[in-house]
């Protein structure tokens, strides 16, 4: 059966995901070492150790995301996060930074290394480079590839692949985007945040509600209508007389219908985005996807329709998995 890798932003979400049938949970420490560094989210050292013990008792694995890029002069913070994850019993660490991967390979050779989507390893040559130089065992593929390309990649590599199937959707190659720091000074790579709430202002202008990020108007909605969050790449802009979602519509990824194709493509694990999501959301999504991977494993048709209402803004896309998306 394909492995279902599920998000946990809190210990309660971790327990909910395990109980709902997750094969593996990914989570991070409550600091800048992980790419979901949001207030009130993530794990203390003690919570992580407890969460791992809980998951292991139920036969699930825990993967610890240490997937921001260590700041120059302060690498020790990231090195300590890796050492603490290993001491807590983590089944693997998810890493993005070349120097950090090299450090872990040398200082923690027994700790399983997964390459984060933030490393943007998008072809067999670079994946094999990470495998040969640093013993990386699994790569989370960037959301820029079609199913056919994923199939081709799996034929040329010996490491496992993990792909996103549900949740928030980056439009840009992950780990290679400075839009947020250009507008706000805070970036996914350095601070673990994108389009941060601390820099969002909603302003009423007559009958319109404008959503600004770092002073830039990213969204406008009629007063009283639901105001979309001003995520940079999902914003509405104007270019040469064209007004619209220049980069991407405010849709979220739902590749559940592609699970059979991804299985055939040789993908080892399916990943659900959403460490910032509630325990109830995590439970419901995990349950649905567990049913889906079991159906695929048993050769039965996919159960349909139950995930649509969980999608952001009620619109879903299969993203880059379909070639026409480009």
């Amino acid at each position: 059966m394909m492995e279902l890798v599920c998000p946990a932003g809190t210990p309660a979400a971790l327990r909910a995901a395990v109980e709902a049938g997750a094969h593996a949970i990914y989570c991070g420490f409550a600091d800048e070492t992980n790419a979901r560094n949001f207030p009130g989210l993530n794990f203390s050292r003690e919570e992580l150790a407890d969460g791992i013990a809980f998951a292991h008792r139920h036969g699930a694995k825990v993967l610890v995301a240490i997937n921001t890029f260590p700041a120059a002069g302060r690498q020790a913070v990231w090195h300590r996060a890796v050492a603490d994850a290993e001491a807590a019993g983590a089944d693997a660490v998810i890493l993005a930074d070349l120097g950090l991967v090299a450090h872990v390979a040398e200082a923690h050779p027994g700790l399983r290394r997964h390459l984060s989507v933030q490393a943007a390893a998008a072809n067999p040559d670079v994946i094999n480079f990470y495998a040969e130089n640093f013993g990386v065992r699994r790569v989370v593929l960037p959301r820029v590839l079609t199913v056919a390309e994923i199939t081709a990649i799996n034929r040329e590599i010996d490491v496992e692949t993990e792909v996103f199937v549900f949740g928030g959707l980056c439009v840009m190659a992950e780990g290679r985007c400075s839009l947020s720091s250009y507008a706000t000074g805070l970036s996914p790579n350095m601070n673990g945040v994108c389009s941060p709430p601390s820099h969002v202002v909603y302003a009423e202008e007559g009958e319109t509600l404008a959503a600004r990020l770092g002073g830039f108007t990213i969204q406008k909605a009629a007063k009283g209508a639901p105001a979309p969050y001003p995520t940079l790449c999902k914003g509405c802009f104007s270019s040469g007389g064209v007004t619209g979602h220049v980069f991407e519509d405010p849709a979220s990824l739902d590749a559940s219908e592609l699970i059979p194709a991804l299985a055939k493509a040789g993908v080892t694990a399916l990943k659900i985005e959403g460490r910032q999501r509630s325990r109830a959301y995590v439970r419901e999504v995990v349950r649905s996807f567990r049913a889906a991977v079991e159906a695929v494993d048993a050769g039965r048709p996919l159960p349909v329709g139950q995930l649509a209402r969980l999608s952001e803004g009620q619109a879903a896309t299969t993203g880059a998995y379909a070639k026409t998306w480009r």
């Binding site: 820029v144 840009m172 290679r176 839009l179 250009y182 270019s239 980069f247 070639k323 480009r326």
Partner: peptide, 21 residues
């Protein structure tokens, strides 16, 4: 002009209602 992001999607093509291919 600062290089801020790279994508699989072509925005020039998208602004002209075309796919990258």
């Amino acid at each position: 002009r600062l290089p801020l992001a790279i994508s699989a999607r072509c925005y020039h093509a998208r602004l002209h209602d075309r796919a990258k291919d």
